[in-house]
Nucleic acid binder design. Structure first.
Lengths: 222, 222
DNA sequence: CCGGATCCTATTGGATACTG
DNA sequence: CAGTATCCAATAGGATCCGG
């Protein structure tokens, strides 16, 4: 492997040797959501050059972090058990970075996978446990997600309100479209009612009061 | 600032924009141990080019992660509160990377700051709480550390057994020198008695049985 | 000395085109 | 679709120099 090293012997240094290269941790982030094909990774990481994606996949594979699995005619990449152990790292970094989010710049997009991981970082299992099971359909920019909270477990899948019924996933309790300022709701800087009043969140279906439940389920202290 | 961006809007991406550049997180790691001068950082990060260190310090400062403090004739860099919130990220990455450590390569050194952070990642506060307060003096390669565990709190400082008495820090219960295979003790792959028998750990002073206490205080599951 | 700034070279990463 | 190949721009590395 011999990735670019730092000349030091220690845990952090070793970690950076393995996943410190540009784009590497974003590939891991997307694979934490689920196995992905080469083209799906390329689509989710819109600006990654193809050669860099190919190089990172090889390095991550050599490091035992991901696995290349031929899966009935198509090839998918998935995390190994050791790769999955990066989840706390990605969540911690995501939580920290989330607090430094400003308004999106013109070229910035929101991908379903990145949004899914952001929801996971903000998910408070111990709070959710005390609330009734709830299904949300949420649209953030282009990304449309189906978010199911049941007890202390969270399940986020792609596609929104139109798909869930066809899949027999049960009804959605609250469907909404949100602008980027929804981060302020999650950071506790914006009250749910205010979010609706100011148009940050547009409720498409369901009781608006459920947005309060959403806000207490998904929360990051600023 | 306008660090190299990824064209995505999300927590992980934002985090990587701020601390994803080469060397950045290692600077943060060392500053988590305590404020450091430019020269101390350069010494701890032996292979960092001077221009890169200077560039990173400016970027981290612009991002509100560190602060440049003139401190009676000398300048020290220290973390801001927001920078200190990177501790979980560094610890998580360190714990993950620690498990992938092999034997040190020829050019690799162990620095006191990196060793200190490795001990912090492996520290089990809830176990330490159940044990008597203990002071260890440990030498790993060049790095000599004084490790004080008291209840659920851990304090690691530089310098070894010779200094502690002069500083009035109380006596050291166990002093030892360890080779890199001590990582296997921390990973639970090597029993304390075996570590002593095989020379991985050389007890210099104190009851050898205390190494068992050390091993249960500092532990990372493989 | 300490805390950098400057210069130059060696590697990496980025954009795009191309192939099995 | 799943990558390679090529070429250019941006960074990192290393040595040296400079001002307080």
């Amino acid at each position: 492997m011999a990735a670019r090293d730092y000349g030091q012997y220690g845990g952090v240094t070793r970690g950076l040797e393995l996943v410190g290269e540009r784009w590497a941790l974003l590939i891991v982030r997307d694979l934490l959501v689920g196995p992905r094909r080469y083209g799906e990774l390329a689509a989710g990481l819109a600006r990654i050059p193809s050669n860099i994606l190919a190089a990172r996949l090889k390095e991550l594979q050599a490091a035992g972090i991901i696995r290349r699995v031929p899966h009935s005619r198509v090839i998918v990449y998935e995390l190994t058990p050791y790769g999955r152990e990066l989840e706390p790292v990605v969540l911690a970094l995501g939580a920290w970075g989330f607090k430094a989010l400003g308004d999106p710049r013109a070229e910035q997009v929101i991908t379903p996978d990145s949004m899914t991981m952001d929801l996971r970082t903000a998910f408070r299992a111990h709070v959710a446990e005390t609330l009734p099971a709830t299904a949300y359909a949420a649209r953030f920019g282009e990304a449309e997600l189906l978010i199911r909270v049941d007890g202390s477990s969270l399940d986020v899948t792609r596609g929104g309100s139109s798909l869930d019924v066809a899949r027999g996933d049960g009804p959605v309790d609250l469907a909404f479209a949100a602008g980027p300022d929804i981060r302020r709701l999650i950071l506790g800087e914006l009250a749910p009612e205010r979010a609706i009043e100011t148009g940050v969140v547009e409720v498409l279906r369901g009781r608006r009061a459920l947005l309060t439940r959403f806000a207490s389920t998904f929360h990051l202290a600023a």
